[in-house]
Amino acid sequence: MAMIELKVDETTALGAAACLFNGFSDGSRLAIVRHLAVGEHRVVELTEHLGLAQSTVSKHLACLKDCGLVESRPQGRASLFSLTHPEATMELLSAAEKLLGLTGDAVVLCPVYGIEARE
């Protein structure tokens, strides 16, 4: 049986990866993801834990949901939010922490994407 070679458009694949990382590119979204890693949360719980406005949390949850990273289910008049793929998400964040540890302050000090560049 001949193997079928699938051609992957590298530009498309890299674009999808960039979109994934954009989903994680906001500190508030990362904080939400970390809280959802321990289990389901309602918006009101996330606002209390994170000290963010309800509208901010809702906006970030909508972004994460649109990216396929978060899902929700109704519970009464509220919705419970959870990670769509918790193990893979936590593996990615763990790898990011490892890479950050290896690069030290280089990312934070980056003139294009570092903290000062965002201000």
Rank of each mutant, 00 (worst) to 15 (best):
E5Y: 04
A88Q: 07
Q75P: 11
A96S: 03
D26C: 14
A31T: 00
A16S: 14
E87K: 10
V44N: 06
S94L: 08
A95G: 15
S94P: 08
G68L: 04
I32E: 01
L69V: 11
F24D: 06
L99F: 15
L30M: 12
D66T: 01
E91L: 04
H85G: 02
C110Q: 15
C110N: 15
E97N: 07
L36Y: 02
A95M: 12
R118H: 11
M3G: 11
E48A: 08
G27S: 07
I32R: 00
G76K: 11
H60V: 09
K65Y: 01
K65E: 01
S72H: 14
H49Y: 10
A106F: 12
L46T: 05
V108H: 02
G101Q: 09
E119T: 03
L80T: 11
R118C: 10
E119C: 02
S82L: 05
R77W: 03
L64D: 10
L83P: 02
V38Q: 09
V107A: 15
M3E: 12
A2F: 10
H60Y: 10
V112T: 15
A18H: 08
R42S: 10
L109G: 00
L61K: 06
S79W: 01
D66N: 08
Q75T: 09
Q75R: 15
V57G: 02
E40H: 14
A31V: 00
H35N: 13
Q75G: 14
L36W: 01
L46K: 07
S82H: 06
R29A: 03
V70F: 08
V70D: 03
L14S: 03
L92D: 09
K59S: 15
C19Q: 07
R77N: 12
S72Y: 12
L50G: 08
D26P: 14
L93M: 05
V8W: 15
V43M: 04
P74V: 08
